[in-house]
């Protein structure tokens, strides 16, 4: 178990030292990797454990981004990040209470719709009250500050995932994933546990959204509520193996690097190649990279 975390820790230290060594391009690429590490890890913590597949990450990410746009000028940077996390968490807690009794496909489709709903609501609200849909971010923190913020969030996401897995809360989530009704008859307050897990995952996505918002100088609903953010989060977690912690971390890094390479080398075939990659991994790696790793370990022994 500990051995699996070692490469993750090494990657974290390497990422921390990177700004002194890497070029701005490498730094920006690493930032994308870290963003998906945080999103996929927190997603797996809830959806991987319980089987409640959420495509709603974009909603939480976008809400965090808008909190940043609203408050960046008058609040200190850490408060902006926490504010993004808080709004996303509050939204998840409220909607979670309404939709977490749905299972399987229904829940998945609804979370997808949720992200779209929030996007349109934001467009409407901004038009009504601010008179504009987009917002310019003028005074943004330095690249270095953003980098370390996202790194801290990625480290926090992994730490939360590890802590949850070892806790009674994590056991309750696993029980819900294995057989929700059975878990309930054994004393798990499933409703509260599901809302708590959904909310915790949303908080991380909201924090990431707030931090990444400053990378764009112009914020608008289509960009920050992009459904691809939710889709990619699910894909990465699945490719890595949503039941493990190291799997999604490794997959986030690999996926971001491969996506970048494909985008540069084959700008037109890029999405096709990513789609093929996904199909192949679903067909041949049902438990993701983590499953491959475990199988290799069994063969070596």
């Amino acid at each position: 178990m500990m051995r699996a975390y070692a490469p993750v820790a090494v990657a974290g230290v390497a990422a921390a030292l990177l700004p002194g060594l890497g070029s701005p391009y490498v730094l920006s690429l690493t930032l994308t990797c870290l963003m998906y590490v945080a999103l996929a890890t927190s997603w797996s913590m809830f959806s991987g454990a319980t089987g409640y597949i959420s495509f709603g990450t974009a909603a939480f990410f976008g809400l965090g981004a808008y909190v940043c746009a609203w408050t960046l000028d008058w609040l200190p940077w850490p408060v902006v990040i926490l504010g993004g996390a808080a709004l996303a968490a509050a939204f998840a807690a409220g909607t979670g209470g309404m939709i977490l009794h749905l299972r399987g496909t229904y829940f998945a489709v609804l979370t997808f719709g949720l992200a779209e709903l929030v996007r349109h609501a934001m467009t409407y609200g901004e038009k009504q009250y601010a008179g504009t849909v987009g917002r310019m971010l003028t005074e943004v923190p330095s690249d270095l500050v953003v980098y370390y913020t996202v790194l801290a969030l990625a480290v926090a996401a992994v730490a939360i995932a590890v802590a949850v897995r070892r806790s009674r809360f994590g056991l309750a989530l696993a029980g819900i994933g294995a057989d929700e009704q059975r878990a309930e008859t054994l004393g798990v307050p499933t409703r509260r546990i599901k809302i708590a897990g959904f909310t915790l995952a949303a908080a991380v996505a909201g924090g990431i959204g707030a931090a990444m918002a400053v990378r764009w100088t112009y914020i608008e609903p289509l960009a920050v509520f992009n459904p691809f953010i939710g889709l990619q989060t699910v894909l990465i977690a699945m490719i890595g193996g949503a039941g493990s912690i190291a799997g999604p971390v490794v997959a986030a890094i690999l996926f971001s690097l491969i996506a970048e390479y494909l985008r540069l080398q084959f700008p037109y075939a890029y999405m096709i190649a990513l789609g093929l990659l996904l199909i192949l991994s679903m067909l041949y790696l049902p438990n993701g990279l983590a499953g491959l790793w475990r199988r290799a370990g069994r063969v070596n022994r």
Binding site: R168, L171, A172, A174, G175, A178, D179, Q181, R182, A183, L186, G187, V188
Partner: peptide
């Protein structure tokens, strides 16, 4: 209705934990 992927002992530990 047992938790298939968990061990027999883990199944029993579950109810004990809640």
């Amino acid at each position: 209705r047992v938790f298939g992927p968990m061990t027999v002992a883990e199944n029993v530990r579950f109810g004990r934990a809640f």
